[in-house]
Write a protein that binds this DNA or RNA. Structure first.
Length: 392
DNA sequence: TCTGGGGTCCTAGGACCC
DNA sequence: TCTGGGGTCCTAGGACCC
């Protein structure tokens, strides 16, 4: 028997959490996001959507469209708690639950749904979730992950869509091509200029040589997705991260070397802390910059051996900056650690190469920083800057 | 309209080794 | 001295998703 995959998507999750904290917000235009220079709408309520507010939109634009909109800065500790309740609830049905993000998951309900009326079961799933947690969700069910995911997007809020193989033509083919998971705002216009407007057009396109050449390795995925034969597995193991990064949009665009170096130091510290918390080290350090035209520029350097030390990360990132981008103006700077290896693997190397002292020094700095928070980091970066000037 | 911050995956060229 | 082909790693950039 074919697998039955279910995709559960929590409706306007962050705002719903705010409503649960403060019921007065229900039915009001509410958004999560800040009003800073680079503030954007993270999520918004359905009332706000009536005014044209959308996620990803600059906050000031949301304010223009809906002057009475209520802005919440975001309470991620609370969201994370609610998310845990959601996943705990899903686990009362089956252990085959795959967390896809903070507010969505895939479940294999093949055995759960046996001998049951699917519609009634799914309604019950929604009703009980609402009763227990106050959260609302849309559900998609199908023989593959793709069809389940497409289904949960069809009706919101509290939608239920079952998409069997035979429903693909009726329910998926009429959708605009940009609704296909993996085709975004760059590819969609290109496809439209080739006469590909709907998912049906997409399917016809990839069945021509021209379409296969256009998509390269993505072709196989599109074909299997639209024929209902793509991936139908649930992945229980949470994969190790492939990279750890922190970026920050500056208060103002700047070409000031000291300012950029200072932020690079802070970002390096954040990356280092995250890597240590995950017990990972990385071999490749990447400098991330975004210029005033919104072009991103990356430079990376691979070390002989992995590190998660803030000073090492900072020194590499900063020297990449000095070497390549001095006197250029940027709006965002950041650092990423890539090529990650577990700590225990890099420990083997450590005994071979013996650079323990630098790790010990940074551990001490870390402990101090954890106690005294960011102010100390700022102090450390100032000290570092002074040292740099002396060295010049 | 004018665009955050965290990620993943893919491509493609060049270096280097065998 | 000029030369193949395969494999792997490094690097830069782009597209996409939540």
């Amino acid at each position: 028997m074919a697998n039955v995959i279910m995709h559960v998507d929590l409706n306007y999750f962050f705002v719903r959490c705010e409503e649960l904290k403060n019921p007065k917000l229900v039915n009001k235009p509410v958004m999560i996001g800040s009003l800073g220079r680079a503030g954007i709408v993270s999520t918004c309520s359905y009332k706000a959507r009536e005014y044209g507010v959308r996620s990803g939109m600059p906050s000031y634009k949301a304010k223009e469209l809906c002057p009475s909109i209520i802005m919440c800065p975001g309470d991620f500790n609370f969201y994370s708690l609610m998310s845990k309740e959601f996943f705990a609830y899903c686990h009362t049905y089956t252990s085959k639950v795959e967390k896809a993000s903070i507010d969505e998951c895939y479940m294999d309900i093949t055995n759960v749904i046996k001998n049951k009326n699917p519609e009634l079961f799914l309604k019950e799933f929604q009703r009980k979730l609402y009763k227990k947690t106050g959260l609302m969700c849309s559900i998609g069910v199908g023989p593959t992950r793709f069809l389940a995911k497409m289904g949960s997007d069809l009706k919101k809020p509290m939608g239920i869509s079952i998409i069997r193989k035979k429903d693909i033509k009726d329910k998926i083919f009429p959708l605009p091509v940009n609704d296909f998971f993996g085709i975004g705002k760059k590819t969609a216009p290109k496809l439209k200029s080739l006469g590909v407007h709907t998912i049906e057009d997409l399917y016809n396109f990839i069945n021509k040589v021209e379409g296969q050449e256009y998509f390269g390795s993505f072709y196989e995925y599109i074909k299997s997705a639209l024929e209902g034969t793509s991936d139908n597995q649930i992945y229980l193991e949470y994969p190790d991260p492939k990279s750890i990064s922190h970026t920050s949009t500056l208060m103002n665009d700047t070409d000031d070397e000291d300012e950029i170096s200072r932020v690079l130091y802070l970002m390096s510290k954040d990356v280092s802390e995250d890597a240590k918390a995950e017990r990972l080290k990385g071999k490749t350090i990447q400098l991330i910059l975004k210029d005033t035209e919104f072009q991103t520029h990356n430079k990376s350097h691979t070390l002989d051996k992995a590190s998660n030390d803030a000073e090492v990360i900072y020194k590499v990132a900063n020297s990449l900056y000095i070497k390549n981008f001095l006197n250029k103006t940027f709006r965002l700077v950041g650092v990423a650690l890539q090529n990650l290896v577990p700590l225990h693997e890099s420990n083997v190397q450590l005994s071979l190469f013996e650079d323990a002292p630098i790790d010990k020094v940074s551990d001490v700095i870390n402990q101090v920083n954890r106690k005294f928070n960011r102010k100390v980091v700022d102090k450390a970066s100032i000290m570092l800057k002074e040292k740099k000037h002396v060295n010049k």
